[in-house]
Design a protein around this nucleic acid. Structure first.
Lengths: 340, 340
DNA sequence: CTGAAAGCGCTTACAG
DNA sequence: CTGAAAGCGCTTACAG
């Protein structure tokens, strides 16, 4: 293995000078720089990142904590993030948590054992921040839910406006003439306008705001984020709320599971019941029927988050909270209710 | 930050002894061990992994190289792998490559810059091994394609028997009476029985083995692995091969894209055309129609790969090539051809 | 502009 | 069973 010492020996300079050109420091003569650079190139030398990190006493790159296993939407964002990071020469270490685990506890453990330069929380809930998060000092960003109300100086966030987007989606349902609308997914957390709870609350607000009745005990069914969960929740909800004509699912995965549940009960979508999703995953454009849904801007969420984190790590920029615009995809899964 | 020095000072032992209990070495008195362990616990001490790795002169954990972006199947395997690794206290760094990149070139670069203890190749093609791989010396495992024929002593593999599984799938189509069968996905690589090419060749062998005609120039359409690619390839194939009654797609994602393409052309699946997939992703059980497909055993592929890699890293076990059994899922996407 | 030296936090022979 | 010491490959004041 060639080390910095070898480069120094071969180039005829000291390891201090080699280190300076490696790190693009000023105060190196052009001659030394070009000589050393050529030796580095011909030896195909790569610095040992462990030694570098040890010295700089911190940092094993960027850690990404993904909350929610097998979540197609989050996986897409993750891949986009890794791609952008790679462009900047940064490697990420990925940690998947299932929905039961707490992301800040995990982050604390990771930050003490691997000392990352920064942490990205993907799919986390702002509700679980606060407890252990205050012990984390490196720059962090929460993607997919707003951390604005949390007020941590080292936590940025990039998010779709879940509350408004859900409201918009549900207003489409109402606009079609639906008056008995159900909701599946997540858990109820009254008051919150962020993340999954924000979607639920935004949808509920749109329903009640239109003067329609909404009794959460009847019209809402909580569930986790697998297709099977969506399938089951839709069935349960329909049993309890048999004259429901429209359904808002807080994620596309749930919506697709729900559509299958309805069709297994002999109901067609959208003729018998309309379904609207959230996320805009690839598959929503290829299912039968194509899903009507809110599309989050994955590329923008990812790239803005990466840029923000890197700038904060390297230049001490203050944390910021940014809303990324969503778009609405007119699919084939909603129509006017039969009774209308 | 508390370091090993602090633990030594507080416990009254030397840092050498602390290090020994940290690493579960023998030759430590029970008394010292329990005293030191209790100090570690109460100080909530976590060793600095950079320093550890530097000393052990190698290794930043395990690197996973995933070839193929937005591949739902690979994402599932990846999450399973990370989960198993976590149980063993190992962190993984993930590197997504798009289909155009070469995985061994990427691995070489990663191994020289981050010095992983081991590398997992997910979704790579055995065809691209060989060139730069011989420069990589750490234990590696190829998941999802066999590396048996490559003969590298540091490369294990765990795979579904793609060739047989595809043959089995296609034989189901033939058993239903189909005689004009098309194939989409991947690229032609005659002779190979591994990975995606193995799927194609296994399918072709089943067709010709049944005495049916197969002209690759007409009946086969290559494509990459997105739903859109499956959609497009199915359309192209149908234009060229309009009396096709059955389609084998080398992945579920492609199959689902194909089904949508057919339905957009007014053909129903399976009444007008049968479709069979490969992978057994979650969604295949919830689409309309439910997809008939070959299900790879994700949990087994992941856990066996992890166990193998860890044992080889720590105990110098020889590399091995293991085939993991597949299962066949009877969905709703195939039936007898209308003409039969 | 450059070099010599200290030190990051660990592990591991080597003595005892 | 335990400690003192060397050294992993780097970076960074400090002199010059």
């Amino acid at each position: 293995m060639t080390t910095i010492k070898d480069i120094a020996r071969i180039s005829g300079y000291s390891i201090g000078t080699v280190s300076r050109v490696l790190n693009n420091k000023a105060d190196v003569s052009d001659e030394a720089r070009s000589r050393i650079e050529s030796v580095i190139r011909e030896q195909n030398y790569q610095p040992n990142s462990n030694a570098k990190k040890l010295k700089q006493s911190a940092s094993s790159g960027i850690a990404v904590i993904v909350r929610g296993m097998n979540n197609i939407f989050l996986d897409s964002v993750l891949e986009e993030i890794q791609f952008r990071m790679k462009e900047h020469g940064e490697n990420i270490s990925v940690h998947f948590l299932d929905e039961a685990e707490n992301e800040t506890d995990a982050a604390l453990q990771i930050s003490v054992s691997s000392r990352p330069n920064g942490i990205i929380f993907l799919g986390g809930s702002p509700l679980s921040f606060g407890r252990s998060f205050s012990e984390i000092t490196v720059p962090c960003v929460l993607v997919t839910a707003s951390a604005a109300s949390l007020g941590f100086s080292n936590l940025s966030s990039f998010t779709t406006d879940d509350y408004s987007a859900s409201g918009y989606a549900v207003s489409k349902l109402i606009g079609c003439g639906h008056r008995r609308i159900g909701i599946i997914g997540g858990r109820l957390a009254p008051g919150s306008e962020d993340g999954i709870s924000g979607r639920i609350n935004g949808a509920v607000a749109a329903i009640t705001g239109a003067g329609l009745p909404f009794d959460a005990g009847i019209c809402y069914e909580p569930c986790s984020f697998s297709m099977q969960a969506g399938y089951d929740a839709a069935g349960t909800l329909l049993d309890r709320f048999p004259d429901m004509t429209g359904l808002f699912a807080v994620s596309d995965t749930l919506a697709l599971g729900a559509i299958r549940a309805f069709s297994d009960r002999g109901l067609s979508v959208p003729e018998d019941i309309s379904v609207i999703g959230f996320d805009g995953i690839d598959f929503s454009g290829f299912s039968s029927p194509r899903l009507t849904t809110v599309k989050q801007d994955i590329a923008e969420l990812a790239s803005r988050s990466v840029d923000d984190l890197l700038l904060r790590i390297n230049y001490g920029r203050p944390a910021a909270h940014t809303v990324i615009p969503f778009s609405f995809i007119e699919g084939e899964s909603i129509s006017s209710p039969r009774s209308a």
